[in-house]
Design a protein around this nucleic acid. Structure first.
Lengths: 136, 136
DNA sequence: TATTGTTATACTCTATAACTATA
DNA sequence: TATAGTTATAGAGTATAACAATA
């Protein structure tokens, strides 16, 4: 079949992102984690006490959409909230959250290593800076 | 804010794909087209008479998910179905479909050009082969 | 006035299972 | 037996609007 799409970088970007996201998701299901969960846990670990709004801005997840994510992580005992003032609350990992993140990080590191190894060596160093130029 | 995620190619891939997809979608809304619509119209144009199943395999869209897409395009008068045998039907663009595709292609070409121009020159040639290595 | 956290809601994309009819 | 087209359904991500309470 003729496919005029495969020469378009924007299309390849979508296909690559979909394919790799599905693969990562299938590896995280055993940990009962989603990609956004691991992203959030990693960001909370690096920024203890940060608010939901601030984390959402960094991850490009809107405030309203942070609510169910944080509720699930809190219900699972992975994060805890502490009031900062009357309207803000700082987030931090619990011990269980740190343990779960350690498992998640192992999956992520394995995934990222395999992903970059799939790229031919001569293109490898260019992938991250090229991608970052598209959104940062 | 510390962000350990931005050095991960897999994460950058997701963010770049999300950001560019949102941008393209906002440009296509004026044409009442989605990204998958334009992909499909381009693929049908290049392969007149192809079946829904074959097109779906090429686009990695499952048979069941092709149904509402094709129904919408057919209702809009952009594609037509012709029986091949008792169970298969070949798809082809209508005149209106060719006209709409011409508009969509203009948007796509503009989008793809801007996308690649956003990548620093020294990384530009590496983006497509690196992405293709991740899914093809 | 602006921001935080929240609720409600809707749309898109994707995935699975199952069914009918035909090859 | 395998495939084509379809229906129904569910999960996940994302978007907007609105609200109360607080800075």
């Amino acid at each position: 079949m003729q496919d005029p799409l495969v020469s378009l970088p924007g299309y390849a970007l979508r296909r690559a992102a979909n394919a790799t996201a599905a693969e990562l998701a299938s590896r995280l299901v055993a940990l009962a984690l989603r990609q956004s969960d691991v992203s959030l846990l990693m960001l909370v670990e690096a920024n203890p006490g940060a608010t939901s709004s601030a984390l959402g801005r960094q991850l490009d997840i809107q405030r309203a959409n942070m609510v169910p994510i944080l509720k699930r992580l809190e219900d699972a005992g992975l994060i805890a909230r502490a009031p900062i003032d009357g309207k803000s609350q700082g987030l931090a990992l619990t011990d269980a959250g740190r343990a779960k993140l350690a498992e998640g990080r192992t999956v992520i590191e394995h995934f990222e290593r395999e992903l970059i190894e799939r790229v031919p060596q001569e293109h490898r160093a260019h992938l991250l800076p090229a991608l970052n130029a598209l959104w940062r």
